[in-house]
């Protein structure tokens, strides 16, 4: 960095600059680093690391109703969880939800992005319309869909009546309640996923498609053998963030089904929340939180690894 000194700089100044630079790169950096990185480190320590260790700690104790630890029990809370049919069914429900949401979000996102990547007059309007759910927050999505699923006046009830089909009571039927939550989640995420896929599809070199056209390859075949492999990094990225997001899902469940009917949509985070703040069982809730952490950490790690690999190429 000191090579920048030029001949028209007077010697005194040069020395001064040299000293300053050297000074800054050694002793002073420590002082600056504590000012620059200190606040963030302190905050992350207090609100991310401390609670993680605290949760791990609580999960190995019995607790009273105030959340104070009373008796060390080791892994007993975990053993209790994995042997309790209630928790196992909750994990299954979460898994069904995660798989359902991820599958339908990606399938619908790809379908929309592929359609909207065609070069047709007026296609810009459709692109805007398809991305519209990006502006929808959890509570708005829940309200709109709660009304659609409403058993007496909802849109689906009206539709089934109109077609003389048997009416379905969406939110009191365990299977349909799960579908209701999946549909709402997919709808809410679709706008964002569509835009990301559209960007990826548009960046595929057109020469590939032109070559395929010359060969007389069908569009269907082109999609599966050109588009999909070319956008596979984006596909992986969207899959992992959708999986992570679905494992952490809470708001829609709280607003639409409250975990019901009969625990049919009682997923992991909803259980953590209920066991701690309504059940008063902090130890159980903490053990569940640690299980959630392990799952999320695993998928985030996968994503980091993949991104690293991509950068290296």
């Amino acid at each position: 960095m000191l090579k920048t000194s030029t001949t028209n700089v007077v010697p005194e100044k040069k020395v001064e600059a040299k000293n300053k630079t050297k000074f800054r790169l050694t002793a002073n950096d420590k002082y600056y680093a504590s000012i620059f990185a200190g606040p963030s480190l302190f905050l992350l320590g207090l609100f991310t690391f401390y609670p993680m260790f605290r949760t791990l700690y609580i999960s190995m104790f019995l607790t009273n109703t105030f959340g104070n630890t009373t008796l060390f029990v080791g892994l007993e809370n975990y053993v209790k969880l994995v042997t309790s049919p209630d928790f196992v069914s909750s994990m299954w429900v979460t898994l069904v939800y995660v798989v359902g949401v991820t599958f339908f979000t990606i399938a619908m996102g790809l379908l929309l992005a592929n359609l909207a990547s065609q070069k047709l007059p007026g296609i810009a309007i459709f692109r805007t319309l398809y991305s519209v759910t990006m502006g929808v927050s959890v509570s708005v999505a829940a309200i709109f869909w709660l009304f659609i699923f409403n058993p007496s006046a909802g849109f689906f009830t009206l539709l089934t009546k109109l077609l003389h089909l048997p009416t379905v009571n969406w939110l009191s039927n365990p299977t349909m309640a799960m579908w209701a939550i999946i549909i709402t989640t997919v709808w809410m995420h679709l706008g964002f996923v569509f835009l990301v896929f559209l960007g990826a599809i548009e960046s595929v070199p057109t020469t590939l498609y032109e070559a395929a056209d010359v060969e007389g390859v069908s569009k269907h075949y082109q999609f599966f053998h050109i588009t999909l492999p070319m956008i596979s990094p984006t596909l992986f990225f969207i899959s992992t963030i959708t999986i992570i997001g679905s494992f952490k899902s809470f708001g829609l469940i709280d607003l639409i089904t409250k975990g019901g009917p009969t625990n049919a949509t009682n997923m992991l985070v909803y259980r953590i929340y209920n066991d701690a703040f309504f059940g008063g069982n902090y130890a159980k809730s903490s053990a569940e939180a640690i299980i959630l952490t392990i799952i999320i950490a695993f998928f985030t790690y996968l994503q980091f690894k993949f991104l690293e690999k991509k950068v290296n190429y």
Binding site: L44, T48, T55, I58, K248, Y273, A276, T293, I296
Partner: peptide
Amino acid sequence: FFFALFMVTMMLPGEAAIIPNFQT
């Protein structure tokens, strides 16, 4: 080391930290 800490933080879900954070 500190940067690694930041990266690890990104892997930890805030949903799992609600009990101690509420107490804090």
